[in-house]
Design a protein around this nucleic acid. Structure first.
Lengths: 109, 109
DNA sequence: ACGTCTGTTTGACAATCATCCACCAATCCA
DNA sequence: TGGATTGGTGGATGATTGTCAAACAGACGT
């Protein structure tokens, strides 16, 4: 059994735009996305992100979708997983897209 | 019964980001989106957009999704419908987003 | 008026998806 | 070692979705 320091994720060149948009086309994942926009690492606890109403495994599912789409990276440390945005990779692959998305969701009121 | 010159579409202020991204999170609709990026009006004929493999009604369905998401506008003229991107409205609501998306899909090779 | 053309609507169907639940695995701590 | 913590896995389920086929509707042309 391999022990990951990072959970598996697509290479930068393999990140697909449609897949990324599909991942963001869900309210819960958009919420996670904007929470991750601070650039820091976040635990998987549903509570501290305003997702109390969702089951643990549901949040886990959404985080898997985002990771497999190439949006996030997950660092494994002990029993915790630290999720963060792949900002550098995404900016390299889709210049300006993340900025425009985050600006758009900010003005969405 | 009202006779539309335009098919019903959401007001600019009502365009929802997640709904837009969900609409673009499909290969067929992304294809339509990039085809519409020329700013011109397009008929609904599946053939002239490289969608021969899809049934008429399937294309009709995708165009409805895009229109209801606020991505496109449809002008009715006789038995034809002319679909075009709501570029001005989208740029007003989500500044920079369309440009970043179209730039991203261009470099997606 | 009749057939043709463009596009939509409705129904059906398989696939995917979001969610919950119960259980599990690994890690930490006392 | 034993319990608590963090998070994931697998199954079940109801909802949504992408697709096709057939029928329909309005507009045009002759």
């Amino acid at each position: 059994m391999p022990e990951y320091e990072r959970l598996p994720q697509p290479a930068t060149a393999d990140i697909d735009l449609v897949t990324v948009l599909q991942a963001l086309g869900d309210p819960v994942r958009m919420r996670l996305f904007t929470s991750y926009a601070d650039g820091r690492e976040h635990s998987c606890d549903p509570g501290h992100l305003g997702l109390d109403h969702l089951h643990k495994s549901t949040v886990s599912h959404h985080m898997r979708v985002m990771r497999e789409a190439g949006l996030t990276t997950t660092r494994v440390a002990g029993r915790n997983r630290y999720v963060s945005l792949r900002r550098r990779d995404l900016d390299a692959r889709f210049p300006g897209l993340l900025g425009a998305l985050l600006a758009s969701v900010s003005g969405d009121d």
